[in-house]
Nucleic acid binder design. Structure first.
Length: 262
DNA sequence: ATGGTAGGTCTCCTA
């Protein structure tokens, strides 16, 4: 038996319910992890998810900003949230499957524009957040875990449209890439999508500001699926659903999907 | 070198 898991930065869950329904009807992932809900939990139409078979949900909402959720067709248990910066922002939630697998759903801070923690505190917060993830990864038992989410860092050269031109752009700076790699090493994580698709450009996000995102194709791979060694197989059928970026009124991120043994 | 768009909202902040 296998199960499929999808991660998607939805950029407002309320205005994109139709888009989510279209995605769930066509792809039918067993588990959907969302980030950037931009909504309090009590304003999210969980009944609409339940009608499509996703009757299990664990939400961490917040007014206007952040927010993460897990919707599932298979049983999940709420395993709590980590408040990495101690500021109450809803950026993480964990759930457990009946077989013991734990799913960690993260929304890492974007970090603002200027890649300097002194002049831009938001960048400092982002670095602090990823440092906290590294420290947490080192403490965890490195087994039976899947980590997904919008990590807001594109670590490899082929994860951005131009490695050279993005070296000083937040999301691909060496300090961010080094930190993200230290999280991977600290938790003994495998980057499942890159293990499946090791070569070539791979993006999960295209800016709203590009008038023709498809032709310009100045994307970045910000959304990730990782797993601990015991869950890694030869292939996980990873897919990044680029076409969803072309749907009507899209998120600037597209869903990423992988499959695991249940 | 610059500006471009989107969403939610204490009309500006965040992405």
């Amino acid at each position: 038996m296998r199960f499929s898991i999808a991660t998607w930065n939805i950029n407002s869950v309320r205005i994109r319910m139709e888009l989510i329904a279209r995605f769930l009807r066509s792809e039918r992932p067993d588990i959907l992890c969302l980030q950037e809900l931009k909504s309090p939990a009590d304003k999210i139409a969980c009944s609409a998810f339940a009608e499509m078979g996703y009757d299990q949900s664990v939400l961490r909402g917040q007014k206007a900003y952040n927010g993460v959720a897990v919707f599932s067709r298979i049983p999940i248990t709420d395993m709590g949230s980590k408040d990495m910066l101690g500021n109450g922002s809803a950026r993480h939630v964990a759930v457990q499957l009946d077989n013991g697998i734990i799913i960690e759903n993260f929304y890492v801070p974007a970090g603002g524009y200027e890649p300097d923690p002194v002049t831009n505190p938001k960048f400092g917060e982002k670095l602090d957040y990823v440092r906290a993830m590294r420290d947490w990864s080192r403490q965890e038992q490195p087994t039976r875990k899947i980590l997904v989410g919008d990590l807001n860092i594109a670590p490899q050269e082929d994860d951005v449209w131009s490695h050279r031109q993005l070296l000083n752009v937040v999301s691909h700076t060496p300090v961010e890439v080094d930190l993200l790699n230290s999280v991977i090493e600290g938790g003994n994580w495998t980057d499942i999508v890159r293990a499946d698709i090791p070569h070539g450009k791979l993006y999960s996000w295209w800016s709203y500001r590009s008038p023709d995102w498809d032709a310009a194709d100045k994307g970045r791979r910000l959304d990730h699926i990782w797993a601990t060694p015991d869950l890694v197989r030869d292939h996980h059928c990873s897919r990044i659903l680029r076409s969803v970026r072309g749907w009507e009124r899209p998120s600037d991120h597209v869903p990423v999907i992988a499959e695991f043994d249940l």
